[in-house]
Amino acid sequence: MRLISRIFLLLACCAGLTARAAKVDTVTTPSAAMNKDIRAVVILPDTYDGQKQFPVVYLLHGYGDRYNGWVNKVPAIKDEADRNNLIIVCPDGNISSWYFDSPVDKKWRYETYVSGELVKWIDKNYKTLADRKARAITGLSMGGHGALYLAFRHQDIFGAAGSMSGGVDIRPFPNNWELAKRLGPKSAFPGRWSENSVTEMLHLLSPGKLALIIDCGKSDFFYEVNLALHQKMDYLNIEHDFIVRPGVHNWEYWSNAVSYQLLFFKRFFVRK
């Protein structure tokens, strides 16, 4: 019995030595536009060996959170990188950037950073498929708005985009989430608030250029603006997936929703 126990122990140890799992890097990336260094989390799949190139999904956090929010609150996101065989990058959008280049504060240039500076840095420092057909972006809440906002404005950079519980129309919320700090008061600058609402940016889309998936819980306070976006896209014959499930604006919902988003992107990458 001792011999058998030792054999099983040896086999277990060997299995542990050969097992592989996603690797999580915390990196510091430079932003010339904002004259500062910015942190990001990079999740590498278990098959990453420094030789093969991988597609990349940029995963944005919500208001009040930072670059490590996703990996800390949804640790299973590492398994998703393995399962879908892709790199996941979680940038820092500060706690309230909304991923704009702010017309009020020139030091807040998070559109320039995420869609330009960070993408170039990731492609330079990791084995990526450096092509829009192998690059997607999504996020939750403020990050859901940011993902669609950046993808709509940079279709040469991103081939697919998604949103989970996204604030896709900011106009109904003039006193929330420091939006007025980034755009100026809505009463004084209504045009800015419209121009920076995803719902009013559909004219930027080139037919068939972006693969799109939008997800929101039925009891979420952003549900009505997401439904309105879906209906407008449907009316304009803009192809997209629209998912509604029971749920509210919380991590329980997003930890489930992100699996659907990443599977959608994996299928997009395979098709392309």
Results as ranks from 00 to 15, higher is better:
residue 142 M to H: 14
residue 130 A to D: 14
residue 135 R to F: 04
residue 140 L to R: 05
residue 115 S to G: 09
residue 121 W to Y: 15
residue 138 T to V: 11
residue 113 Y to I: 00
residue 128 T to W: 08
residue 138 T to H: 00
residue 125 N to Y: 03
residue 124 K to N: 14
residue 131 D to F: 09
residue 136 A to M: 07
residue 140 L to Q: 12
residue 121 W to M: 04
residue 124 K to W: 12
residue 117 E to R: 05
residue 138 T to L: 01
residue 143 G to L: 07
residue 116 G to S: 13
residue 126 Y to A: 11
residue 133 K to P: 04
residue 134 A to T: 12
residue 143 G to K: 03
residue 131 D to I: 10
residue 113 Y to G: 01
residue 132 R to M: 12
residue 119 V to K: 13
residue 146 G to A: 14
residue 126 Y to S: 13
residue 117 E to G: 05
residue 126 Y to D: 10
residue 129 L to G: 04
residue 131 D to Y: 13
residue 128 T to L: 08
residue 140 L to C: 11
residue 127 K to P: 00
residue 136 A to Y: 05
residue 112 T to A: 07
residue 146 G to K: 10
residue 135 R to S: 05
residue 129 L to Y: 03
residue 115 S to W: 01
residue 138 T to A: 14
residue 122 I to Q: 01
residue 128 T to A: 09
residue 135 R to A: 00
residue 135 R to I: 01
residue 117 E to D: 08
residue 128 T to N: 09
residue 123 D to M: 07
residue 146 G to Q: 09
residue 119 V to F: 06
residue 139 G to V: 06
residue 137 I to E: 01
residue 127 K to N: 12
residue 128 T to F: 09
residue 145 H to D: 10
residue 144 G to S: 12
residue 133 K to H: 14
residue 144 G to K: 09
residue 147 A to R: 06
residue 115 S to P: 04
residue 116 G to Q: 08
residue 137 I to D: 01
residue 120 K to Y: 02
residue 122 I to S: 00
residue 124 K to Q: 15
residue 115 S to Y: 02
residue 139 G to C: 09
residue 126 Y to G: 12
residue 143 G to N: 05
residue 120 K to C: 05
residue 145 H to R: 13
residue 130 A to L: 02
residue 144 G to Y: 10
residue 123 D to C: 10
